[in-house]
């Protein structure tokens, strides 16, 4: 076969094939990224055309900005709790769906719905349920004898209320990844564990979970990235309030850039968010399984 008869000559075909994507990604992703980093080193006056180069001054100011520190802390608490919650719920769902029972396919489809339905719409509906006076959640709380909560209306509970919505929305993806991991586990080690007299808890802890490690790590990292990037839930339900208790870095960066039009400093905050996400995605990239990629 002489598929490679052109070897030695410059081959244009692959470049033509990737050309459109390169131009698109270059214009809408690479250029804005470079531009953002440049913006974070500028002090804009009254117009976007009129700026002064300030180097890394904005970044030096960040640690002294209580709103930035608050944003960083809120981001870590929000993402940390949401990842923990979604990992727990998603794994339980995956383990349940891994055994066959009547209607398993239907249940799996139902469990996927929170992840595909429109986040703004779901968040809005959660908002009506969280309503302290007329919401259904406080009705349930009273029915089971719990103290009604202020949910989103109090700085003490607002962030955790958002975490509930985030867990609801993120668990399905964890479930799918863990379920795919469970399906790829070979059966022999499970059988030999049983023959060796391991009970089901021991099998889970010492055989299944170690073999699932890759899937669990992948699920956790991807959920972490998704939660770091969360905006619709927060913006629809609290817009960062009350008293900035739900103001994550994303929300702070958005507010700086698009409400106060503080382009330089806003860009600096967004660069920090970007670095956080890139840091996590480096670990995701190391999970790749395909032979050449």
């Amino acid at each position: 076969m002489r598929l490679s008869r052109r070897r030695g000559r410059f081959d244009l075909f692959p470049f033509l094939m990737i050309g459109g994507a390169i131009v698109t990604l270059g214009a809408f992703m690479v250029y804005p990224l470079v531009s953002l980093v440049l913006m974070s080193m500028r002090d804009y006056g009254t117009s976007t055309m009129n700026y002064r180069f300030v180097g890394l001054d904005w970044f030096a100011q960040l640690p002294r900005d209580p709103r930035f520190v608050n944003g960083l802390v809120r981001t870590i608490v929000y993402s940390g709790s949401a990842v923990a919650g979604a990992m727990l719920m998603g794994s339980i769902m995956a383990f349940m769906l891994n055994r066959s029972f009547a209607g398993a396919a239907i249940v799996r489809t139902l469990f996927i719905l929170p992840m595909v339905s429109m986040p703004v719409a779901s968040a809005l509906l959660w908002g009506t349920m969280f309503n302290p006076q007329q919401g259904v959640l406080n009705y349930f709380a009273r029915v089971v004898g719990l103290e009604p909560s202020l949910w989103l209306a109090s700085p003490a509970t607002a962030l955790m209320s958002l975490v509930i919505v985030e867990v609801w929305m993120s668990s399905p993806l964890v479930m799918l990844i863990v379920l795919a991991g469970l399906r790829s586990i070979p059966q022999e080690p499970l059988e030999s564990a049983r023959i060796d007299g391991a009970n089901s808890l021991q099998t889970l802890a010492f055989v299944i979970v170690p073999m699932l490690r890759a899937a669990l790590v992948a699920a956790a990292l991807i959920t972490l990235i998704d939660t770091l990037k969360q905006f619709p839930i927060i913006w629809v339900l609290t817009q960062g309030g009350p008293v900035r208790s739900t103001e994550t870095l994303y929300v702070y960066g958005y507010a700086l850039g698009f409400q106060f039009f503080d382009l330089g400093y806003g860009a600096a905050v967004l660069v920090v968010l970007l670095l956080l996400v890139v840091l996590v995605s480096v670990f995701v990239m190391r999970l790749r399984q395909r032979s050449w990629l």
Binding site: M29, P32, L33, Y250, G257, F258, L270, L273, S281
Partner: peptide, 15 residues
């Protein structure tokens, strides 16, 4: 492309 896919889209929005 994978790396860009994971970035928060807000970072492209300001520029």
């Amino acid at each position: 492309i994978l790396m860009m896919r994971m970035m928060p889209t807000i970072v492209f929005m300001l520029p």
